[in-house]
């Protein structure tokens, strides 16, 4: 009896999975975010899931799994069943987990099949207005004349902002010291109040403060001028080739069937055709920059390799 039952169960399960392959999705899709609600990552996931849900004909639910500096979520998705029903909304910063924490339970490249790049979010190099610099060139001049005299605010050790700061020091050949704060908001506050003269913070937060005259944005870390922030030059205009730009992705566990990945990629691409999703992302301070999963797969290994090297050198203090 039991054998009969279990055989029946197995049959029906197989039938279910066969169906899923032809008509994905047949059940709600969960988008896992590694951070608490609010903030850029969560906003991105919520906007995207709101747009693709009607297209896929199934609810797309955002699930926040914060903890361990955002590494619990990618680890959870990496070990989830690769059926497209559990996907990950993550940022370039997921590359840092394995460097700073050791065994995190995922490989930022090998554990995932990219679905799409959604947006990019360059950092801004900012100064307190009282310091009296307004360009990257003036900044380099001032700091190099006083090596080790100046501090810059960073939102913590295992962050892309800190890495960008250390990369900038290297590229410009200058000496300054990082002061760490508990996240982005306190580091913005420290530069606004003048406790710390410089800082590397999110471009959108910096832009609002700069409009009110509380901060001076010297440049951003993207490779070229970005839409919506045309007046702000990239640091790369002064230091050729300098780039440290986080991107936000949607990824599936490695081994997810390609047609399922393509189905979700297609839904996101269609959401980009209208003005709505790009407009919402822009208003949320993100810079829409769609790429297909294939394009991401082509670029990601090199980006991950470079960032990992920088992160290791920063970690080991070399």
């Amino acid at each position: 009896m039991y054998r009969l039952l279990s055989a029946g169960l197995a049959l029906s399960l197989m039938a279910g999975s066969a169906l899923a392959q032809t008509a994905f999705p047949t059940q709600p899709i969960t988008v896992v975010v590694g951070f608490a609600p609010g903030g850029g990552m969560d906003t991105m996931a919520r906007l995207v899931s709101g747009e693709i849900s009607p297209q896929l004909g199934q609810p797309v639910i955002v699930e926040n799994r914060p903890g361990a500096a955002g590494t619990l979520a990618p680890a959870f998705v990496a070990s989830a069943k690769p059926d497209g029903y559990t996907i990950y909304a993550g940022e370039t910063s997921a590359i840092l987990g394995p460097v700073f924490q050791g065994n995190v339970g995922y490989d930022p490249v090998k554990s995932f099949t990219p679905i799409a790049r959604i947006a990019v979010a360059p950092h801004a190099l900012v100064a307190n207005p009282g310091v009296g610099v307004s360009t990257v060139a003036q900044f380099i001049d001032l700091v190099s004349k006083n090596p080790g005299e100046y501090f810059y605010a960073s939102p913590g050790t295992a962050t892309l902002q800190y890495l960008a700061g250390e990369m900038l020091k290297d590229a410009a050949g200058i000496e300054m010291e990082a002061v760490h704060f508990q996240g982005g908001a306190p580091s913005v506050a420290a530069v606004v109040s003048g406790e710390v003269p410089f800082g590397i913070v999110s471009l959108s937060a910096a832009a609002a403060q700069a409009e009110g005259g509380k901060l001076v944005i010297l440049g951003h870390t993207g490779p070229e001028r970005v839409k919506g922030f045309e007046k702000i030059p990239p640091i790369a205009e002064t230091i050729k080739g300098f780039e440290a730009m986080p991107s936000q992705f949607i990824m599936a566990p490695a081994g997810t069937p390609q047609e399922i990945v393509d189905r979700i990629t297609g839904a996101i691409a269609r959401a980009y055709e209208g003005e709505k999703l790009p407009g919402q992302l822009t208003r949320a301070g993100l810079i829409p920059a769609f790429q297909t999963g294939g394009e991401v797969s082509a670029e990601l290994p090199a980006i991950a390799k470079k960032l990992t090297e920088v992160a290791i050198s920063v970690r080991d203090g070399t």
Binding site: L47, S204, A207, A208, Q209, K214, G285
Partner: peptide, 8 residues
């Protein structure tokens, strides 16, 4: 999200 960037 409503397009109001809080600043000073």
């Amino acid at each position: 999200i409503q397009g109001i960037q809080p600043g000073p």
